[in-house]
Amino acid sequence: MQTIDLRGISCPTNFVKAKLALEDLEVGETALILLDDGEPVKNVPRSLKADGHKIVALKQSDDGHYVLELEKGEE
């Protein structure tokens, strides 16, 4: 599974980078997206959901960042 590391990248650059990275995936494929706590974890999952992708899970890692498991939706 592909990992898209968006830690240390602020909004909305992180969301745009996620969109670009998702272009390389097939519909139905899943990816792990790493996000900082705070604004990134509030905004990015919501925007990806609005783009038609499916949020499978969200877990906080021990060092505080978030791991979003995402399934690519229809274009």
């Binding site: 974890v41 919501r46 949020i55 906080q60």
Partner: peptide, 10 residues
Amino acid sequence: CISCGLCAKN
């Protein structure tokens, strides 16, 4: 609910 916690976070 899949217990992702995004609602509480937001």
